[in-house]
Amino acid sequence: MAAIAADFSTAPVLPKWIAPVLLLAVAYGVVPLIGSSYLFEAILLPFLALGLAGVGLNILTGYAGQVSLGSAAFMAAGAFAAYNFNLRVEGLPLIGSIFLAGIVAAAIGIVFGLPSLRLKGFYLAVSTLAAQFFVQWALTKFSWFSNNSASGVIDAPKLSIGGLALDGAVGRYLFALTIVSILTFLAYRLVSSQTGRNFIAIRDNETAARIIGIPVLKTKLLAFAISSFIIGVAGVIWAFAYLRTVEPDGFDLDRSFQILFIIIIGGLASIRGAFFGAALIVVFPLGLSRLSGFLLGDVFDSGVLDMSQRIVLGALIILFLILEPDGLVALWDRIRRRLLFAWQST
């Protein structure tokens, strides 16, 4: 996987922190005031959850070079662990449940990361499928996980932090936004730290990494642990803030693939890329469905429309990957450079 982080190659014209700070200012200050409930429920909440999951998988796959198809399993582990901590541990604040859920997901990640010490590439990807099937099976099989609910579907607890109820669409959005922002910032710090450089070294040349004394085995497992922690917390957001129910079937193999698509389309080894990819995956089908319903709604029935949307989406993804294999981030940087160049030359 010849992914080269676009983050490193661009010469920043403005200080690096300006864009994220502006973005956060808008996200906290403007969006809650003007956004409709549809925007929060259908777009922003899934975008935040999937973007965070993408950040998690990108640390493992984009930076450390270990391909994983078990992302949805770690999301499920996080969601169900948070549910159970919240249910069974008296007096544990919600944030505590979420943190512990991340730890549980990290532990499961380490277990299913053990094959990475011997396996590489596609072989590793296939072995991570084991996590996907095992976790889903265990959650369905043992009803203890869903508090003996007959259908296996459970209702997420009401969100509140320090007595402040965050139950409405805006409240859940702010809750998700805060967690996602903090974890993304920490992830950004991580990938530019010595540990992050070790990840990239192992990805780019494992033999050389071992010879210069990078602890390869430990670092790989650490990548699995950190990645699974973040994906687990993303699972909590997905279940608690977005869907508000938790069920194993929501975390199937399709979800794992969706997260893998997000980082490939967004740009491997890029923190921003995960959010670009998530935006495309969430918004694009909605826009396409609106557009086709508007243009062709009278001609075809909804089943045909739905199917043709998938075909168009797939075709567009293929086309996009041919035109820009380094992902949306590379495209974005190119456009930005052109604009800056045009602006400077006037």
Partner: peptide
Amino acid sequence: ALFKGLSVLD
């Protein structure tokens, strides 16, 4: 056997 995705410094 360089790490292609890292800067010369790194």
